[in-house]
Amino acid sequence: MTAPADRHSWLVLALLLVLAALPLLAPGYYVQFATKILLMGIAAMALNLVVGFGGLVSLCHGAFFGLAGYVLALTAPRYDPAALWWSLPFAVAAVALVALVIGALSLRTRGLYFIMVTLAFGEMLFYLFQDAGFAGGSDGTFIHYKPELAVAGLTLVDLEAPAQFFWLVLALAAGVILLLRHLLAAPFGRALRAARDNERRARALGFPIYRLQLGAFVLSGALTALAGYFAAAQFGFVAPQMLGWHLSAILLVMVVLGGLRTVAGPLLGAAALMGLEEVLKLATEHWKLVEGLAIIGIVLVSPAGLRRLATAAFGASASGGEHLAAPPRSTAEDTTATDRSIRHA
């Protein structure tokens, strides 16, 4: 088993560095769109910690994403911006706590049950906010001001300015890549992957599987919350749909598109899927039909093909520009191991 810290995530980091020049070159719309991609990418990378490296298919990460936005909306003062210093840690901690409870219950199950149980608990949060009176119910609620990042009255980053918002999110994405790389190379990550590849053996070796997986689940939830917090701040609005499981499924598509075994791949998956959606929306009113068919088509290609396809797609575009997704090593062997682990998980 090779370390997941492949060259590929360095390439993505380099790409992010280049991308930092975007606000100087492109109009505001593209900067905001890139911000959205980065936020979804962070959530997808966070989800991949559980799916790709933990072998656990979770369908409640959309709820974590939306919940963080709701925490921001509910804790922000009505006529003033919220202070990022405390509202962000509070939102992340709140979601981590929820993830702890959901994870503790869901991890009692495996395989199909895990998928269904995470889906059900995620939807529980959806219905809670949909039916609740305290957060605008099904209409959702506005966040009138972006959070304020200031020390002693001095604004460090002005989030009302799209360019600064973008740079902050860009830095976060880079930070998440580095953190995940570090974690996965550490004993924690190695043990997590061991449990994915052969749970019985890992257990026999004395790894505390349950605690490892719960730790990964909570961390993954917290990082998803980070993305959800800023996404809500960017939209200036939260609604129950942002908690729904369709978002979880979309994040899974991004993960698979980008590569299950890579740290930064899901970020590229997010860019690919959101780019595709944008193009389809321009082309046809029924873009979801095409997107659905595209997802089915991608899945129908052989198991290894999911990644081969992503590599081919990025590889084709990379010939002209950056090498976005350098083919991961030992494709076939790697992928069959993923299949096996997910099926057996």
Binding site: G111, A249, V299, P303, I342
Partner: peptide, 8 residues
């Protein structure tokens, strides 16, 4: 694997 089934 289940992930494939979920996505399909």
């Amino acid at each position: 694997d289940h992930l494939t089934q979920v996505l399909m």
